[in-house]
């Protein structure tokens, strides 16, 4: 197996773990809070899901930088001028910052969830899009609109399934 194939496989595994982890984090969170409290077992499931998310995030970054190094060694630095790639890098950065903000509780849970969920799917979609002309502005306009939509969808789901404390 050559290095490029190895990096592609690692990148896909990282994305799958991240997107799957982000999806199941939301599903588990809603299921765990349906009775208004989070039990010890439910908390351990959430921790396991977040651990998988972190592994996915790390593999994604490691393999992503692997592509950079490979491009540098093979003198194919044209890759580094792709708007799609810089947009994806920015979104991966947002995933990392959002995780820190959520842990510090400096961002409301629903907004943090919407950003994490949308960002992982955005990274997946940007990675899957073929070569072509992309506008940085439009990528981020669609991304921000998607975060707002996901926020309202999550809010409706939480309102429907999670009892409010008075």
């Amino acid at each position: 197996m050559d290095w490029y194939t190895f990096l592609i496989i690692t990148h896909i595994i990282g994305t799958v773990l991240g997107v799957g982890g982000a999806t199941f984090a939301e599903v588990h969170l809603i299921r765990a809070l349906r009775d208004g409290t989070m039990s010890r077992d439910e908390n351990s499931i959430m921790q396991a899901t977040y651990a998988i998310l972190r592994v996915g995030f790390f593999l994604l970054i490691l393999s992503g930088f692997g592509f950079f190094v490979l491009a540098r060694l093979e003198e194919h630095t044209g890759l580094l001028y792709s708007i799609k790639l810089w947009a994806k890098l920015g979104i991966v950065g947002i995933i990392g910052v959002n995780a820190v903000l959520l842990q510090l509780r400096w961002i409301p849970l629903l907004w943090g969830s919407a950003i994490a969920f949308t960002s992982w799917y955005a990274a997946l979609i940007l990675g899957a899009l073929g070569r072509g002309e992309y506008s940085f502005f439009w990528i981020y306009a669609v991304y921000i609109a998607a975060i707002i939509i996901v926020y309202f969808v999550l809010r409706a789901i939480h309102a429907r399934y999670i009892p409010h404390k008075h």
Binding site: R54, I61, L62, F65, V69, R72, G96, A99, Q103
Partner: peptide, 28 residues
């Protein structure tokens, strides 16, 4: 030299991942 460059990047990323993990756990 190519190996040195690869190790520089990979070890730096591992260190970044580890310091990120340190931060996320310390603030708990």
């Amino acid at each position: 030299l190519a190996t040195a460059l690869v190790l520089h990047v990979v070890l730096g990323l591992i260190a970044l991942g580890a310091i990120h993990l340190t931060f996320m756990q310390v603030i708990r």
